[in-house]
Simulated assay, not measured.
Amino acid sequence: MMKTILHTADSRGHANHGWLNAYHSFSFANWYNPDRVQFGALRVLNDDTIAAGMGFGTHPHDNMEIITIPLEGDLAHKDSMGNASTVKSGDVQVMSAGTGIFHSEFNPNDDQHTKLFQIWLFPNKRNVSPRYQQITLNKTDQKNNFSQILSPNPEDEGVWIHQDAWFYLSEFDAGTTKKLTLKKVGNGFYIMNIEGKINVNGQSLDKRDALGIWEIEQIEITASTDARFLIMEIPMNV
């Protein structure tokens, strides 16, 4: 029997620090909602806007898979593994924090903000060696298609993480309908609608609305308008 949970854009936690305007799909920092702690292995989905020249100073993480997807602008990254890079809109970055890392993230531009999703998943194994990966996506693959950007397999499309999860980015023209089947039985889907309006198995989603759906093998997505969205297939039992 299909189960769903709707997280509308205006139901998210919100914190505007001036330099950072953040929306939290799940409990984070000073926002705590006992009904919104996680969705399966998905622990954090933050929708952040970082002001020009501002950012997060060096801070630690461990035993978490951290995925960053810039939507607009750039993010300058430095970490204790020796990586220093700029993650741009159209890229995806992943860090397996494992036994522990330190990193900083800044908007390197003085004339524009940076918008990004930062996503944390619980890993399927603890205390792995920390690792970093960053790739540039082919946006044409996303047109009216489920373009895979993340998986558990290093040889697969996109980045990889220590978890049986698959992420897809899509840009649908209005009227496009497609079906997506789970890669792993028992997983669920969490769909974040980035722009436009879509319908997922009969549920309409406006901009920044999200839908968790599980105990199902397949979803059908129809774009009511031109739309952009992120689909995350994630383990429900962690």
Rank of each mutant, 00 (worst) to 15 (best):
E155A: 13
G196H: 04
T140S: 13
K178V: 08
Q134K: 15
D141A: 13
D156N: 12
N127T: 09
F189E: 00
R131W: 09
R126K: 11
G202Q: 11
E155Y: 13
G202C: 09
K197D: 12
T177K: 15
R126G: 10
I194F: 09
N144C: 08
V159E: 00
N145F: 03
R131C: 09
M192W: 12
N193G: 07
N201G: 11
S170Y: 00
A165C: 06
R131F: 06
Q148E: 08
N144G: 05
K143Q: 15
V128H: 08
V128F: 04
Y132T: 04
D206G: 15
V159F: 09
N138H: 13
W166I: 00
H162L: 06
L182D: 00
N193C: 09
A165V: 01
N144D: 15
D164V: 00
N144I: 09
F146Q: 03
A174E: 11
M192P: 03
Y168V: 04
N145P: 04
G202T: 05
V200A: 01
Q133V: 07
N138D: 15
K143P: 04
L137C: 07
P123E: 02
K125Q: 14
I135G: 03
R131G: 08
N201E: 12
S147E: 06
S151Q: 02
W160I: 03
L205V: 13
S170F: 00
F172V: 01
F167Q: 00
L205N: 03
H162P: 04
E171C: 14
P130D: 04
Q142R: 14
